[in-house]
Nucleic acid binder design. Structure first.
Lengths: 186, 186
DNA sequence: GAGTGTAGAGAATCATCGTTCTCATTGCAA
DNA sequence: TTGCAATGAGAACGATGATTCTCTACACTC
């Protein structure tokens, strides 16, 4: 296996473990076992645990963006593209191992001590909001709408995780429809 | 100082430290120093760190409920009571040391391993939503509205923490107005 | 086939954490 | 004053974590 493949497997394994149980709760020895590599190899691929955490967050950012983009690409109008976000959330919330937004979790757990984590999480959320703003602009709605739709998505993620139900996605979608229509003066 | 006062001071100190930096990042020795008690006294008041974490979350729940309730009591109509939530958030977000919702942070950091933390966080959020539902009912609006207003509040808290701006409160308030009016058929 | 470098397995190291223990001190009761 | 219980200060303990080191085995070069 090439060295990138190994790094990828480490990151994928770390992502799963960190997301399930938290960053601090999962040690390097457990990651080594789960990824099926030696400790030495772990430290050959990444200089320290921090670097793995960052790589995990960056991978998660790419995957989130791709998944949302794929959902949006399935529909034809800007309005439906905005609503596609909540349909994606509805599916995600049904995942057996859904445990909230990994970035919010990272922010809560590590953000107090690690400015780099804060930066990555902030950029992730900014990028999502920018994408929504592109679409609201295409709709002819103000950027305020994009910010509000983002609030609904954030709230739905934490609420679904904590309540352990998927219903927040549908509630957010319904609210989004009202806000969109109102912003368009319907 | 009486033993309850000491326990209170320990909990208040722990709350501040845990909220600022995270639960795992703050050890018992640091808490001992900051609270100005002996390690022995710490363990006389609480059997283990878990118990302090739980006491912190329970105190935070009482304070949140009281603060929101106080804001609601300042206004006269159910509609204004709902909107008072976002005014409270707007003030809170301006706090120099605001770092998001302590319950969401606890859920992200400890929820993966500690079912008791999950339970406390879930009950906190349920209680908030129940309170909103009482008011939407008084307004003659369906429970769906309460859930949607809660999503906005949750989203605003995480967004304000991550973006390090207070503007999410105003955005959520404006969205809430639209949703309330729509629910009432205005 | 001998020699060299690379990597795996896991022991060793060093720090830190939660928790308990020791012991000297203090406040108080008889 | 003497004896006793309670407490503070902090050392000790056992576990665990991140990181590094050792040593062995194997693959590849000449």
């Amino acid at each position: 296996m090439t060295t990138e493949k190994i790094a990828d497997r480490i990151v994928a394994t770390a992502d799963r473990l960190y997301y399930e149980r938290g960053f601090t709760a999962v040690g390097m020895a457990e990651l080594r076992d789960a990824a099926g590599v030696s400790l030495r190899r772990l430290y050959m691929e990444f200089p320290a645990k921090d670097a793995i955490v960052r790589a995990v967050l960056e991978k998660r950012h790419r995957e989130w963006s791709e998944s949302v983009e794929a959902r949006m690409a399935e529909v034809d109008t800007p309005r439906d593209r905005l609503l596609a976000v909540y349909d994606y959330l509805a599916d995600w919330f049904c995942d057996h191992d859904f445990r909230g937004c990994g970035f919010i979790n990272a922010f809560g757990e590590l953000g107090g001590e690690d400015p780099e984590v804060r930066r990555i999480v902030r950029e992730h959320k900014e990028s999502f909001q920018r994408r929504l703003a592109e679409i609201t602009t295409a709709l002819g709605a103000p950027p305020l709408l994009a910010a509000q739709l983002a609030l609904l998505a954030e709230g739905a993620q934490t609420t679904a995780a904590i309540a352990e139900t998927a219903e927040a996605a549908g509630q957010a979608r319904a609210a989004a429809e009202v806000l969109i229509d109102h912003a368009l003066g319907v």
